[in-house]
Design a protein around this nucleic acid. Structure first.
Length: 464
RNA sequence: GGCGGGUUGGCGGAGAGGUUACGCAGCGGAUUGCAAAUCCGUGUAGACCGGUUCGAUUCCGGUACCCGCCUCCA
């Protein structure tokens, strides 16, 4: 059995991974809020944890891993978008427009993440389908004294959980000193956070013991993880920005509501994404979605490769340069392994992945395999990482065009030129072919024409 | 202010207390009418200052700089 080691944010150490039940390894990852297209930053945890999912399936068996990633479909940005549509004349109630918006966004999300070669998780629960469980959990927290109702809200009593702040290395008192917390008259303590809040008529709401309202953000993950994975499970993942307060709050709620469980054993956090050295933000004009890149003709497989070039715990810089390098490598590997059947993943690749998901090291092992001409091993290993798979490969398939006529013509001109020593006609045709995106290979053996990345059939037609 | 992370050769980016990372680019060569593609060869890097050690880029301490979170943006 391959020994997996993971850096546990909770202990800040790299630890051997021991699942609670090897027959059912369980992982929960915080998913997107479905109000708009996923931007590139959203895609990083998807690829990171997809890679971990694939590794776990490889080690424990495909049927022995349960991966849950939620859709947050209760959110003020969704409400705002639905309201905007209604005011713009869209038909339907607010609830219908919200549902419409989230359905649409989820479909986009699936399409975009599929394009990155991410497997669908075992379960993709939507917050709106677990409101009952959230209410039940909130009631339990009130009953056990960890939460209190006030003015239609229910708040978690942070001081009632001794270990609050442990995951992110903060103390409640330090945080109060920072004083960047929402102060509300009904809070016992400024750090207390919302489990339930009242909804106005213009907001979606559900009936509850505290009146019509909606859940706070953090409770959904605790409720869904409990429902689908149990009181204790193996891995909880997400972006580093979620470590505080989101994950801290999840732990507090879950630990207090289910004192006999210990929630997640291993916490994994991926570092953030940057673009050309800067944080991606709308104000800097470097904000873009996964779909934007795909529409520009950058294949999802290339995006995935670029992500895997950097270890998940380091900030990753997206650059056009890296995309170019990744595309060149993938083209080479795809061409070389196209007609080869995948064997089994190389030990060096599996070991690199098992060592805290060292994807950069795994890619290096792939390069080594390429150097040795082990295309069967390379293909199997790359596929373990979600690369060189069937369904991602369409972009790299050379256009099916018959270039034999041009090739014969070029060969004839060349043969003449060899005698006359006047190569101008040969060079002119070659230049035209290159301009049309055709790779021209001439050797003693003959002339070979291969459609390249920028192949342009129209320009080829123009050559006569 | 609090907490956390980082600083590796032209660029990207890993591992390992002492032996070539790797990729891209570059350079040299083979090959080619010239190229392209391919192949071969080629790089005394480790922010700074101390400490531990026979030996540190790798461990420990400090300094500088950068970044993230604490503002429901992953």
């Amino acid at each position: 059995m391959v020994k997996i080691r993971l850096t546990n944010s909770r202990t800040r150490k790299k630890e051997d991974f021991f699942p609670i039940d090897p027959a059912n390894v369980r992982m929960y990852v915080c998913g997107p809020t479905v109000y708009d297209r996923a931007h590139l930053g959203n895609a990083r945890p998807v690829v990171v944890f997809d890679t971990l999912f694939r590794l776990l399936r490889h080690v424990y068996g495909a049927d022995h891993v349960t991966y849950v990633r939620n859709f947050t479909d209760v959110d003020d940005k969704i409400n705002a978008e639905a309201l905007r549509r209604q005011q713009a004349g869209a038909k339907g109630t607010l609830e219908e427009l919200i549902r419409e918006r989230t359905e649409e966004t989820i479909a986009w999300y699936h399409a975009d993440m599929d394009a990155l070669g991410a497997l669908r998780p075992t379960h993709e629960p939507r917050a709106t389908e677990y409101i009952g469980q959230m209410i039940a959990m909130t009631e339990e927290l009130i009953r056990s004294g960890h939460a209190y109702a006030a003015e239609g809200h229910v708040l978690f009593r942070v001081r009632s959980y001794r270990d609050y702040g442990k995951l992110s290395g903060r103390s409640v008192d330090d945080m109060i000193a920072g004083a960047r917390v929402e102060v509300a008259p009904f809070k016992e303590d400024p750090m207390d956070f919302v489990l339930w809040k009242p909804s106005s008529a213009a907001e979606p709401g559900w009936d509850s013991p505290w009146g019509r309202g909606r859940p706070g953000w953090h409770i959904e993950c605790s409720a869904m993880a409990h429902e689908l994975l149990g009181e204790s499970f193996d891995i909880h993942g997400g972006g580093l920005d979620l470590q505080f307060p989101h994950h801290e709050n999840e732990i507090a709620q879950s630990a207090c509501a289910h004192p006999h469980g210990d929630f997640a054993h291993y916490w994994l956090h991926n570092e953030m994404l940057q673009v050309e050295g800067k944080k991606m933000s709308k104000s800097l004009g470097n904000f873009f979605t996964v779909r934007d890149l795909l529409d520009q003709g950058i294949p999802g497989e290339v995006i995935r490769f670029v992500f895997l070039m950097t270890h998940y715990r380091s900030p990753m810089d997206w650059t056009a340069d890296k995309a170019r390098a990744a595309e060149a490598t993938l083209r080479k590997w795809r061409a070389a392994s196209a007609s080869v059947a995948a064997s089994s993943p190389l030990p060096a690749v599996v070991e690199a992945l098992a060592d805290d998901l060292n994807t950069a090291g795994a890619l290096a092992a792939l390069h080594a395999a390429a150097g040795e001409g082990d295309w069967a091993g390379l293909k199997a290993s790359a596929q373990l990482m979600g690369l060189l798979t069937e369904h991602l490969g369409a972009w790299a398939t050379a256009p099916r065009v018959d270039l034999s006529g041009q090739a014969e013509r070029l060969a004839a001109l060349r043969a003449e030129a060899m005698v006359s020593k006047d190569f101008s006609a040969v060079d002119a045709l070659k230049a035209a072919l290159v301009a049309a995106g055709v790779e021209v290979r001439m050797s003693k053996a003959g002339v070979e024409l291969v459609p390249g990345p920028g192949f342009d059939a129209a320009r080829l037609e123009a050559i006569k």
